[in-house]
Design a protein around this nucleic acid. Structure first.
Lengths: 253, 253
DNA sequence: CGCCTGGTTGAGAATCATCAACATCTGTGG
DNA sequence: CCACAGATGTTGATGATTCTCAACCAGGCG
C-alpha cells in the first residue's frame, strides 16, 4: 500500500505539531475510557505510560493476528474493525470499536494478538503498554479492578453477539447492530438517530453472519417500512420504536 | 424441584465427611486451573481463600443471572452449563465447563452475574471469592497476570464460537464441538476418543444455534459415514481425521 | 404398567445463500 | 473537468440448508 500523501503538513515521522498529545485529564472521552476515581498522582502515573501515535489512515493496521502482544489500545477518534481468520482462511469480523472503547485484550492470554485491528477511517489511537499497566495495577487497586471490568464487559458483549447469531433472524441482527451503534453514539453525546456507518456492507454482513446481499435487502426493507432512511452509509433512524420491535422480532409486517 | 434424595449418607447441611477439602496443592487439576509458579507461601495464601462446598446435584445452580457477583468458580468434578436469557425470554447456552476450567468471569463488569450456571451432573465446585482474589492479586503479580490471561482466553474462545456460528454449517459446528470436548478430555488425561456427553441434544443445539432435530440428524449422518459411533450420550470418535475434515468443511461426502 | 422426558426420523416450508445483472460511488489520470 | 475502472452496493431469480411440524421410539421413574 502506498504511503498516505502528507496533506496539510501532516508529518510522517511520528511527530507532528497537532494535538496528538492531548492528555487523559483533558480528553473528553476519559469518562468512557477511564471511568475511575483516581487520585491525582495516580492519574498522572497512568497518563505517563500511555502513548499517542500519529493518526492512522483508513486501512492501516493497529496490530495483526499473531503479532507479539504488547499493548491494549483505546480509540480516541475514528473507528476500528477487529477481525480474525477462520481455519479456512476466510475473514471473520469480531467487533467494531468507537471512540472511548478499548481493544486488543484478546491478546493477553497467549501473548500474541488473536485478532487483527484496522482503522475504518482516519483514526487516533492511544496505546497502553500492558506490562506497565500491569505493574501500575498492582499499585492502584481501582485500576486493576477497572481492567478486570473492561475484560468482563468484552466477554458479556461477545456473549450477546453469540445470542444474536444463534437465535436471531437477519432483520433482528441488523436492527440490533444499528441500535448498538446508536446507543454508543448517544454515550458520546452524538446523535442517536442519525449517523454515518464507517464500515462497508460486507463488514456488517461478515460481523452478523450474513451475506452482503441480505444486509442490503434488510436495509431496503427497513427503509420501505419506514424504520430507517438509508443513503448509502448515512443512516437516519426514522422510528426507534419500530426498530426496537424489529430487533426483538415483534415487528408486525 | 424436589430435594435430591440423600443417597449414600450424603449430608445436606453443607458439611459432610467426604473429601470436599482437597487442597489445591494436592489437586491433580491444579496444573490446569492454576498453572502458576507460585512461591510456597503464595499458594498457601491462595489456598486459604478458596472455598469448597458440598457436591452439587444435577440441575442445581451455582449462580443465576442477575445475582450479585461475589466469586468465580472452578469446576473440580462433573460439568457445568452456562446460559443466559435472550430478550425474548428464550435460553441461550453460552458455554460448557469441565474440570479444571473457570467460570463466572462475566459477572465482574456489572457486579452481577450476566449468566446462570447449573450442574449438568453431580459436580464439585471450588468457589474463589473475587474481592479477596483481587487483594491477593495486588500482592502476587503472577496471580494477577494469570487471571488476566484466563479472562482473555474466555474472550478468545467466545470469538471462536462467534466464528463457528457465523460461518459454519451444522456439520461443522457439531464436529467442532466434539473435537473441543475431545481436546479438553485429553488435557485431563482422559480418553480423547470415547466419552459421555453430559449435556442434552437440546443443550448442544442451543449452544450451536441449531435445533434438536438438526443435531440429531448430524449425529446420525456422522455415524452412517463412519466418523462416530453414537449410543445416546456415549460418543466414540471412530475416525478423528474425518471428523477434522467435517469440522473444516472438507469432508468429501 | 404407563407416563413423561428426551431422542430420532420424515415431509414440507421458510429463510437466507448463491449466482447474475446492473447501478452507483470513488478516485485516478487524461 | 470529464471519462473510466474498480470497488461497492442494489435487486432479482433460483436453490440449498435448516427450521417447523408431526409422528414415533426408547428409557427412566413413579
Amino acid at each position: 500500500m502506498a504511503e498516505p500523501s502528507p496533506v496539510a503538513g501532516e508529518a510522517r515521522d511520528g511527530r507532528c505539531h497537532h494535538d496528538h498529545q492531548v492528555s487523559c485529564t483533558s480528553c473528553r472521552l476519559a469518562p468512557l475510557c477511564l471511568p475511575l476515581a483516581l487520585e491525582t498522582g495516580d492519574l498522572e502515573q497512568l497518563e505517563s505510560i500511555i502513548q499517542r501515535g500519529r493518526p492512522l489512515q483508513k486501512g492501516e493496521h493497529i496490530y495483526q493476528e499473531g503479532q507479539a502482544f504488547t499493548s491494549v489500545y483505546a480509540v480516541r477518534a475514528g473507528s476500528v474493525k477487529a477481525y480474525r481468520y477462520a481455519d479456512d482462511g476466510s475473514e471473520q469480523v469480531t467487533g467494531f470499536y468507537f471512540p472511548g472503547e478499548i481493544l486488543g485484550m484478546d491478546g493477553i492470554s497467549r501473548n500474541r494478538h488473536a485478532s487483527s485491528a484496522l482503522a475504518l477511517e482516519t483514526s487516533a489511537i492511544c496505546e497502553i503498554p500492558f506490562e506497565r499497566l500491569n505493574e501500575l495495577s498492582t499499585r492502584i487497586p481501582s485500576l486493576q479492578r477497572h481492567f478486570f471490568q473492561l475484560m468482563s464487559q468484552e466477554i458479556t458483549e461477545d456473549q450477546e453477539l453469540i445470542t444474536l447469531l444463534s437465535k436471531h433472524s437477519a432483520d433482528q441482527r441488523v436492527a440490533a447492530l444499528l441500535l448498538s451503534i446508536s446507543a454508543r453514539n448517544a454515550r458520546r453525546k452524538l446523535s442517536a438517530t442519525a449517523f454515518r456507518l464507517p464500515m462497508s456492507r460486507a463488514d456488517i454482513g461478515n460481523y452478523l453472519g450474513l451475506t452482503v446481499e441480505t444486509v442490503s435487502r434488510v436495509f431496503s426493507r427497513f427503509q420501505k417500512l419506514g424504520l430507517l432512511s438509508v443513503d448509502s452509509k448515512e443512516i437516519a433512524i426514522a422510528d426507534v420504536a419500530l426498530l426496537r420491535d424489529a430487533a426483538s422480532g415483534t415487528l408486525s409486517t
